[in-house]
């Protein structure tokens, strides 16, 4: 892990605070970055009650068993990635505690805990045009009857691998993207948003 004073978010070079101070009346989307989240990859058998209980114990959050869903408890979220793979997502402050908690709760079990926090950043997108902007680069059906709050999907957005999580009906989305692709994806969204109007949320 890098020293705290050296830490820079993957989108810091855009100067989000300066962009946020610009007037953007009637913007179709508001874009922001939620940097430095704790993202912990866990593997295990969802049918094993000892595993699900250990996850609940360590995080306070239930393990989502249904495909493409997210469970939330307080400031911890668990996102479904595959039939035996999940991300535990929390604030940066909880990172070490969550990892230690999961590792000790899993003692003796055939499981895996990997800290992948530094690999990704999160682009947040909210506003009435969010669905239209995403639709320009995604093959998923984002209509409310097919994809709603509490659902997530790993897919590709304008050729970039992302995890998309819808958080509310505004609609608001969180886009988990590899840090090295974040610059490209931000610029791409900006380009599409020229048709809808875009505001930036301060860091």
């Amino acid at each position: 892990m890098v020293e705290a004073y050296q830490r820079r978010s993957a989108l810091a070079h855009f100067g989000l605070n300066a962009l946020a101070s610009q007037k953007a009346d009637g913007a179709g989307i508001t874009l922001g970055e939620s940097a430095h989240r704790a993202i912990i990859n866990i593997r295990g058998d969802a049918k094993d009650p000892a595993f699900t209980a250990a996850v609940k114990n360590a995080t306070g959050c239930d393990l989502p068993a249904a495909a493409n869903t997210v469970a939330t408890a307080g400031d911890v979220r668990i996102l479904w990635l595959g039939p035996d793979e999940w991300w535990v997502v929390g604030t940066d402050a909880r990172r070490a505690g969550l990892i230690d908690g999961l590792r000790s709760a899993f003692a003796g079990q055939h499981t895996n805990v990997t800290d992948v926090s530094e690999s990704r950043t999160v682009i947040t997108m909210t506003g009435p045009a969010a669905r239209d902007v995403l639709a320009r680069g995604i093959s998923l059906d984002l209509h409310p009857r097919a994809f709603g709050p509490g659902q997530c999907a790993q897919t590709s957005l304008s050729r970039t691998n992302v995890l998309l999580h819808q958080t509310d009906n505004a609609p608001s989305y969180e886009i988990y993207v590899l840090k090295s692709f974040a610059d490209y994806l931000w610029r791409w969204i900006g380009l599409i948003a020229e048709d809808f109007g875009m505001a930036v949320k301060a860091e």
Binding site: A67, S139, A153, T155, S156
Partner: peptide
């Protein structure tokens, strides 16, 4: 069989 219907380019 795990995620449901998706476009071919994801595979």
């Amino acid at each position: 069989p795990y995620c449901g219907p998706r476009d071919e380019h994801e595979f």
